[in-house]
Simulated assay, not measured.
Amino acid sequence: MPQFSRRQFLVGTGVLSALGVAGASVITWDELQQRAVTTPLAAGSGILVVLTLYGGNDGISTVIPYADNAYHDARPELSYRPEEVLHLDDQLGFNPALKGLSGLWRDRTLAIVRGVGYPEPDHSHFRSMDIWQTASPDEPVQTGWIGRWLDATGDDPVRAVNIGPVLPQLALGAKHTAAALDPASAPLSDDLAAVLSGLAAADASDSPARARVCTGYQAEQTVRQTFSSLKSPGKTAANPLTAQLDLVAQCVKAGVPTRVYSVSLGGFDTHADERHTQEQLLGRLDEAVTAFLKDLSTHPRGRDVVLMAYSEFGRRVAANASQGTDHGTAGPVFLAGASVAGGFHGDEPSLTDLDNGDLKVTVDFRDVYHELLHRVLATDPTPVVGSGRRDLGLLSA
Rank of each mutant, 00 (worst) to 15 (best):
Q3C: 07
T13R: 14
L16C: 14
A22C: 00
D30N: 13
E31L: 06
Q34D: 13
Q34C: 08
T38R: 14
L48R: 07
V49D: 01
T52C: 10
Y54W: 13
D58C: 06
G59I: 02
I64R: 02
P65W: 00
Y66K: 04
Y66G: 03
N69V: 11
A70V: 07
Y71S: 04
H72I: 08
R75I: 08
R81F: 05
F94R: 08
N95I: 02
N95W: 08
P96G: 09
G100E: 01
L101W: 11
S102P: 01
L104Y: 06
D107K: 12
A111W: 05
V113Y: 02
R114E: 09
G115Y: 03
Y118K: 01
Y118L: 12
P121V: 10
P121F: 09
D122Q: 12
H125L: 09
R127E: 04
I131C: 06
T134A: 07
Q142P: 00
G144L: 05
D151V: 05
N162Q: 14
P165L: 02
P168N: 03
L170F: 03
L170C: 11
A171M: 14
K175N: 14
A178P: 01
D182H: 00
P183E: 06
P183T: 03
A184T: 13
A184Y: 14
A186R: 14
S189W: 05
D191T: 13
G198W: 11
G198I: 08
D203F: 03
D206R: 02
P208Q: 08
P208R: 08
G216W: 07
E220N: 04
R224N: 11
Q225M: 12
Q225A: 13
F227R: 03
K231G: 08
K231Q: 15
S232E: 10
K235Y: 06
T236H: 14
Q244R: 04
V248H: 10
A249G: 12
A272P: 01
T277Q: 11
L282Y: 03
L285R: 02
A288K: 07
T290H: 01
F292N: 00
K294I: 01
L296N: 00
S297Y: 00
H299I: 00
R301Q: 08
R303G: 10
Y310A: 13
G314C: 05
R315I: 02
A321R: 11
T325Q: 12
H327S: 07
T329S: 15
P332A: 06
V340I: 13
G343N: 09
D355Q: 14
V363L: 06
V363W: 03
D364N: 14
Y369N: 09
H370K: 04
E371V: 00
L372Q: 03
R375K: 14
V376Q: 03
P381W: 11
L394T: 01
L395D: 10
